[in-house]
């Protein structure tokens, strides 16, 4: 066999070697890209979950402030009501000194205490038992507070769930791409017909992986209104 004939006999095999090597590089880069994106989405899951939990804490801190204020108002109103009942009893007496004392309590002390009582004892802030509906007062305050209303932990949790679903598919995809790399590695070290079989399966897995990657990213990013 001449040198020329030998070269021509090995040429298709060498060409396939180059193709497989290029494919290996391309699949490795794709797998690395998918792994990076999976990791980035995983970070988003952690960040949004963390943001949601921080929102829960913030919301509860604000709720405690509102709750303390509302109970302080109810307490002032209750103490004012007690003093008003006392004043009424004294004013009903037939002793001028007690009437004067009751009148002074009623005219001076009760109104000043009532000033600290907020809207209590308004009719819509009473329970069916006639006691103060402090929860209704808290709800009234919170529904009128834009800062409180702006904190929505459920929104962060929903976003985290969305990222989590994206991560789920990207992880499966990353595994598929890693396996494609394995098949192409097999194609690199085998020969003849089996080399082609390994190569075809590897390329098919890679193609499915890339198609799925584009599909998954389009679906989730579009669903979030373009937010990556």
């Amino acid at each position: 066999m001449t040198q020329e004939a030998s070269t021509s006999q090995h040429r298709p095999e060498s060409r396939l070697d180059v193709v497989i090597a290029i494919l290996l590089a391309v699949v490795a880069v794709t797998a690395a890209l998918a792994a990076w994106r999976t990791s980035a989405v995983g970070s988003q899951v952690s960040d949004t979950n963390r943001a949601g939990l921080i929102d829960v804490t913030k919301q509860q801190a604000m709720h405690h402030i509102n709750e303390n204020s509302a109970y302080a108002e109810a307490d002032y109103s209750a103490q004012a009501a007690l003093k008003a009942a006392e004043a009424k009893t004294l004013m009903a007496s037939d002793l001028p000194a007690l009437v004067a004392a009751g009148s002074s309590l009623n005219d001076n002390l009760v109104p000043s205490m009532q000033k600290l009582a907020g809207p209590f004892p308004q009719g819509d802030l009473l329970t069916t038992l006639g006691t103060y509906d402090v929860d209704a007062r808290i709800a009234q305050v919170e529904s009128a507070d834009p800062q409180y209303l702006a904190i929505v932990p459920a929104a962060s949790f929903a976003l985290a769930d969305d990222y989590s679903n994206e991560k789920r598919w990207l992880t499966i995809l990353s595994v598929l791409l890693a396996i494609a790399l394995f098949w192409l590695g097999m194609a690199e070290i085998t020969s003849g017909r089996w080399r082609v079989v390994n190569l075809v399966i590897g390329v098919a897995l890679w193609a499915v992986g890339v198609g799925a990657f584009i599909g998954i990213e389009t679906w989730f990013i579009t669903g979030r209104g373009g937010v990556i």
Binding site: A85, E86, L90
Partner: peptide, 13 residues
């Protein structure tokens, strides 16, 4: 009587 009136009001609330 005034003390009892205060007690009654506290009970109501």
């Amino acid at each position: 009587e005034a003390a009892r009136a205060r007690a009654k009001q506290a009970m109501a609330l």
